[in-house]
Design a protein around this nucleic acid. Sequence first.
DNA 1: CTCGTTATTGAAAATTATTTTCATTATGAC
DNA 2: GTCATAATGAAAATAATTTTCAATAACGAG
Lengths: 154, 154
Amino acid sequence: MTKTKSSRQILSDLKSAGYRLTQSRAAVVRVIDEANGWLRPEQVHAQAKKHCPSIGLVTVYRTLALLVEHGYIRRIHFDDKCHGYARVELSHGHHLVCRGCSQTVEIAGTEDLKPLMKQVQKETGFVIEDHLLELVGLCRECQPNPTRPRSRHG
Amino acid sequence: MTKTKSSRQILSDLKSAGYRLTQSRAAVVRVIDEANGWLRPEQVHAQAKKHCPSIGLVTVYRTLALLVEHGYIRRIHFDDKCHGYARVELSHGHHLVCRGCSQTVEIAGTEDLKPLMKQVQKETGFVIEDHLLELVGLCRECQPNPTRPRSRHG
DNA sequence: CTCGTTATTGAAAATTATTTTCATTATGAC
DNA sequence: GTCATAATGAAAATAATTTTCAATAACGAG
């Protein structure tokens, strides 16, 4: 249902909104658009440099914030201090994270949440616009060896 | 189903696991136990000081990490850099965040996710141990005035 | 196309949550 | 009580993110 906007469309939207159409912004938007999962700011920066070699990490942060602000992308939270960013459509996929090896799998099936959302809307009066589900567990390979890795804060 | 362990029980579990039973730890565990929602490390520290005036923020962090490690509490993520911690039982409640005023509401009803979890386990081979659902929307009060607040990164 | 205004940028400094280091303290076994 | 050592607190270190500010580039007017 929620159709992701193309790079071009996002840029033209921003232009209409009064923002200047800079190479840096084009680069970041393009990177996000072409990625098929979430990216950390550093990764966005690395990729964006290919299209706009002079772009700085600071501008990446600023552009990401702009895109979040305008609802084109969504911020994703992780256990360590790093955040990730993904196109809005992608962030709707559920997240399955392995506690053992940290691999992350995207799972479809937002449909299953519909009834829950409806119920919550009724009970709380909130209008729900977005959701993010993170499941944590052990993948097949880590199950025989469920060592709890001294999570990245050590 | 998931019954929260009492302060006392957690402490005695830790003792059995070979950890020393210090005043600092007792204080942190007690604070977490008495809170009826999530707390940021700073808040835990402030509360814990009432029971153990000498406790330092560093020890709070260490104790929280210990409790997470052993599965007594769960870390919760926020848009800004601050994390929150809550008893496991609480963290299983779903999270409803208002995009307008940032208020966060805990909602029960993990049951609705059971079928989804089962399906995912079957499809992916993961053993799912925990989950975190964040719903984002607008609360009743913010609905008439859906100004997007320059999210806390400014 | 050129010029001027001004939004945007990059680099470096600043900020802030969290972690590490290490000398000191307090817990628990004897 | 005494002792070995896990645990602590203070300060320094770290790392992601923001802010500052002079330099640059986008784009509307001419």
